[in-house]
């Protein structure tokens, strides 16, 4: 078969190759890409899929981001868990079998300062051997404090690498500072963390331009901080109420191209699959390179104790509502090995 892209070598893919891959509708190339990504994932990860669950501890937020269900001016009930409530949420979540917990907060230096996040990590550490964070960008010293408290990973999405678009979508609040956010992964690395999870919110701008910039960002970090395990995430935007912004479409085919190029460029990196995707699509694309997914996710504050809260107030709509047990048996039936325990905190120093 004559490939229309003789210059693309899938076993030595470069970030520059992404442009032609992202713009082509060539079915042959898409299939070759998918097979190469599947084989490489199998070689380096076997059937292992790491499972975790988010834990929302506070939804106070001073940012206004057009696309977010938690944004400051919505009429959402604001809530912050006390340490006792965090303890109970952790107990409920750990009781479902989850061993890896991702603590999330909105950005509010008053309601959820680093000291509060630190206390939450210590409480969560009593229930989970593996605690990670998805919180607003901090200084190196603040990050270091959280690493020492027992957190091992940080998730931070740049959202978009298009500065102008970033400015339009982030109407007000500290998040408006593009540079402070884009430099945060380096501060996380310097603070000592083991894992950094990065991503772009697909659809905010033309993903064909955003994704290569995300890849270059990770490649830069990988060279400078090789000891860190990197994970890539590709959440697709889901429209929320009262948002009049126009977003770019990201089709299922596009998603496959993005995941597969991510795998080929970063053979040993983690790739995370969002619960924003519906279960049918999730089940299909796991094989193209996914190594991590959340299971039994609730995106509201206090949702694991009080399931009713969750009905109305999640940050975004979870399209895959299956429990940990259901996700595990789905994975096993497809020949995957669900990994619930994948780290033991060893006293970070």
């Amino acid at each position: 078969m004559n490939s229309p892209f003789p210059h693309i070598n899938l076993s030595h893919l470069t970030i520059d190759d992404c442009i032609s891959i992202f713009h082509t509708e060539d079915r042959g190339l898409l299939e070759e890409l998918a097979q190469a990504a599947r084989d490489l994932t199998h070689q380096y990860f076997g059937g292992a899929i790491g499972l975790y669950a988010p834990l929302y501890i506070s939804n106070y937020c001073t940012n206004r981001c057009t696309y977010c269900g938690f944004q400051a001016h919505s009429d959402l009930t604001r809530r912050k868990l006390t340490l006792d409530e965090i303890d109970r949420e952790c107990r409920a979540l750990a009781g479902t079998g989850i061993r890896n917990c991702l603590i999330l907060t909105g950005e509010s230096s008053y309601h959820s300062p680093p000291s509060y996040i630190r206390e939450a990590i210590i409480v969560a550490g009593r229930h989970f051997p593996n605690v990670s964070l998805e919180v607003y960008p901090l200084t190196t010293d603040e990050y270091r404090g959280l690493y020492h408290a027992g957190a091992d990973g940080v998730t931070l999405y740049q959202e978009t690498y298009d500065r102008k678009r970033y400015d339009e979508l982030h109407i007000s609040g500290p998040k408006k500072d593009y540079a402070y956010r884009i430099e945060a992964p380096e501060r996380i690395a310097k603070a000592g963390f083991r894992h950094i999870s990065m991503g772009a919110l697909l659809g905010l701008t033309d993903w064909r331009e955003d994704i290569p910039k995300l890849f270059s960002h990770i490649r830069y970090l990988e060279r400078k901080y090789p000891g860190i395990e990197y994970t890539l995430s590709f959440p697709r935007i889901r429209p929320v109420a009262k948002d009049s912004q126009h977003y770019f479409e990201v089709s299922d085919r596009d998603m496959v191209k993005i995941i597969c190029t991510g795998r080929l460029l970063f053979p040993r990196a983690g790739i995370n699959l969002s619960t924003r995707e519906n279960s049918e699509f999730r089940d299909r694309i796991i094989q193209f390179g996914i190594t991590r997914m959340s299971a039994g996710s609730l995106t509201s504050v206090g949702g694991y104790i009080d399931r009713n809260t969750h009905e109305q107030e999640g940050q975004f709509e979870v399209h895959d509502q299956r429990s940990l047990k259901e996700i595990k048996s789905m994975l096993m039936s497809k020949g995957y090995d669900p990994v619930v325990t994948d780290w033991r905190n060893i006293v970070n120093q």
């Binding site: 079998g97 061993r99 051997p129 990994v339 619930v340 325990t341 994948d342 033991r344």
Partner: peptide, 11 residues
């Protein structure tokens, strides 16, 4: 790998 062993044996 020690990281894969569930010391609390919940799973």
């Amino acid at each position: 790998a020690l990281r894969r062993i569930d010391l609390e044996q919940t799973e």
